[in-house]
Amino acid sequence: MNYIWCAMIIFSLIVAALNGSLDATINAAFDGAKSSVEVVLSFAGVMCFWTGMLKIAEKSGISEKIEKLLNPVIKRLFPSASNDAKKYISMNMTANILGMGNAATPMGIKAMAELDKSNKNPLRASDDMCMLVVLNTTSFQLIPTTIIALRTAAGSAEPMSVIAPIWITSICSIAAAVAAVKVMTKFFKRR
């Protein structure tokens, strides 16, 4: 991100100099800074509402229920994972579903450490490790709180209208990624 951000700014200024739009570009920088404050202010309320609701869900044991629902899926997706690994994987996936990114990552890293222990060929990522990483890079979120909040801040009349398409799209991308892992695993074994 370090280089990308610098490149964004330097590239803008170079193009602006060539276009003769330097003034407009510098003003745009301050507009951007100003609008980030406006966005955060209108975004904070909705965001806090949802983190409040999700805290209620978390405390009333919804996590345990989701974990129970996930167990059969995990058994199928991670056939050779140890029980400890499966426990962390299930906590990682539950946190992802509830949108608790801060809780999901540590659990995922612990799960990876468990999978690493039982990896017979430690320099190469095992099937289970690939599966876990891919599930996290395509994760499914029950309520996309940040997006709802951002849409509200942008003056959307129906900020929640994108939830259903997001669910469907997430399921498709998870299915595609999981299928890709399974297919490539078979391919690698055959070679």
Partner: peptide
């Protein structure tokens, strides 16, 4: 995710993840 493991070759993790994103 791979930072704290001993893995040097992530093999199919990257293409699979990218397939998920494109989908």
């Amino acid at each position: 995710y791979f930072a704290k493991t001993r893995v040097k070759h992530t093999l199919r993790a990257v293409p699979c993840a990218v397939i998920g994103d494109i989908t």
